[in-house]
Design a protein around this nucleic acid. Structure first.
Lengths: 347, 347
DNA sequence: CCATTTTACGTTACGGGTAACTTAAGCCTT
DNA sequence: AAGGCTTAAGTTACCCGTAACGTAAAATGG
């Protein structure tokens, strides 16, 4: 296993030329052998492969892509944060599916800000990705410009975007909020709280809230909002957001949360204060977290298949890259889960 | 905003030469302006930057890295799965920290198999990453070879590896399992169940179990194992693993779970069967999930700062890349959480 | 047995940046 | 005014693979 002492590049990495020289062929022949595209004898193939093994040669895909005859197998994937279990699942769906096609995710956590997203887009584009998958449909003007100019497939996920930059897959959040509002109203709830986190830019949660308010107010009810400044929408902000809401407002009959994690926080707050659910107060979440599958009391929520969403996004991306016809817009749908944390019929 | 109609490369991307031609300078001068390294007049700088904006030029970092004078800003990050909240947090810690240094994570979900990891390593190395962060310390022989030959920093996380390939950050899982075993034994539990998932290769969970058994058996107790074949260690396998364990074995006084998610599943199983915790049965998890922060009954568990683990891994990577002295091995520690899902003193 | 095709290679050029070197012009000094 | 120095450029070569093209030897055919 003698190490080649001749020309070694700066990174001490074995190049194709070295393999070729060691095998006594031209690098073109070595290249052909490695790609298995024919045009060489069996004897030559063996000679080359022996040297590949002996020298531990690993191809430099950068050079191939750089030469411009291939596209990279990077897909940039931007996700707001992974503290939210929902997005972790979406990412898992994306990465697993991409992996089956030999593509890799280059991750970007944008912390729900357009500026972070823009910065990340600029950086990731400089790596010549084959495509981008972005969460949300709201992007800064500069980001939009760059995306249009990049000339690569872009899938916007999470919010269904009827007029996407390129492709979109997700659900209509306004509708899902509306359905929940209508459902809770139909049970006779009139004064309903909402607990979520606050963000400077519009997002899917905002749209759910808008749809929710429209339905509740349309049915003659009222929504009392409590938007915490906490950065991530998880258990603890759900807990103390509930505390704040109930301290500020009397007679709240039911609370709709930005997501299930916050709803669990709220559920625990109620338990800690001796409030019975759903007798004293109704609780509804959104997203149908896996933990709900083992709760003895089913949380009222809205189911979205996050894993499927991610997989679908990756499939659309790959479809575009292989030049198959791909729908511009895919609604993966949601399903309201009545649960038992709200009263089960109108009063 | 006339689009340059001259030479446009295959991908329709604006190259530095085009910017240079449009600005009436050589591409070297344009390159100098873009890198701000001096050697040009203010007038020239303005001319070049005008064309950069007009043409929407984005540098091609692939070319720079390829030329070999710089290293890429990719860090390959392998994670078993994101369905496990714990790893999602680790990844979040890694990516956020890397982001502050201008580096990007290239994700690999290895599904807890060495073969997947090996394949991913081969692929990701072909993209010339600046370094790799891998979960776990068990790699296939070929993977180990490739890692050694790559000549780039490697951080092994999760399991603390006293003799790492390069660097390691994590905790001693054997010890944490041992501590839990000793603690439960000290409370008088004799016949203790363990519920986890089964894997063909050794991993951190296996080590926790080994440590746990050693402590329990050393104290004169016995461990009854129940390893489910379910792929991910989440709520539902915890639920039915508990069912199976209790169906197969009588008089189990307490159950230790592979992680908190499974323990919650177990907790719910017990609740559904009318078993009182901790009077009828003790429950202990591992990992201290965020949801535990809002439970009215504190789950007996073991706390590890996952976010910090990820951040530390990224810091060690960046330290190595900037050629600062970096410790080979960092133990981020764990803390046993007594909780209230086990009895609170010996019988 | 010679002409034609096929096989098995080798050679050249290229992509998009940057290091290293070269050149031309401007400025200062004595 | 000649020589030396600084500034602001331009020129060349290179990184590592692969497409496109060229060529010599072997195989095939009439």
């Amino acid at each position: 296993m003698a190490v080649n002492m001749d020309k070694v590049n700066k990174n001490n990495k074995v190049s194709l030329s070295e393999v070729a020289r060691a095998a006594g062929v031209s690098k073109m022949t070595a290249s052909r052998v490695l790609r298995g595209e024919g045009g060489y004898s069996e004897k030559t193939r063996v000679k080359v492969m022996e040297q590949v093994d002996a020298l531990g040669y690993l191809p430099n895909r950068l050079a191939t892509v750089f030469a411009g005859d291939q596209t990279s197998t990077f897909i940039g994937v931007s996700i707001p944060d992974l503290g939210n279990e929902v997005f972790a699942q979406v990412l898992e769906g994306i990465d697993r599916k991409l992996g089956t096609f030999g593509y890799q995710s280059v991750l970007g956590l944008t912390q729900h800000t357009q500026q972070e997203e823009e910065n990340w887009i600029r950086t990731v584009l400089s790596w010549q990705p084959a495509g981008l998958i972005l969460t949300g449909r709201y992007h800064s003007p500069r980001a939009t410009d760059m995306l249009r100019n990049a000339g690569i497939p872009v899938v916007e996920i999470w919010d269904l975007n009827a007029a996407p930059l390129d492709m979109s897959v997700g659900i209509n959040h306004f509708d899902s909020g509306f359905d929940m509002g209508r459902y809770l109203s139909s049970l006779g709830y009139q004064k309903i709280g909402y607990v979520g986190t606050s963000h400077d830019t519009a997002n899917a949660a905002t749209e759910r809230l808008n749809g929710f308010c429209k339905a509740v107010e349309g049915a003659g009810g009222a929504v009392v909002k409590q938007l915490c400044l906490h950065d991530t929408a998880t258990y603890y902000p759900g807990f103390y957001g509930t505390e704040q809401l109930l301290a500020a407002t009397r007679n709240v009959e039911c609370i709709f949360y930005q997501n299930d994690a916050m709803a669990f926080g709220g559920l625990q707050y109620c338990a800690s204060k001796g409030l019975t659910v759903p007798d004293d107060i109704g609780i509804a979440g959104w997203g149908d977290l896996p933990i709900a599958s083992v709760m003895n009391r089913r949380l009222t929520s809205c189911h979205v298949s996050h894993l499927k969403l991610g997989q679908k996004a990756a499939e659309m991306m790959m479809g575009r890259l292989t030049e198959e016809p791909v729908p511009t817009c895919t609604d993966i749908g949601f399903r309201l889960i009545p649960g038992s944390t709200v009263r089960n019929s109108g009063v």
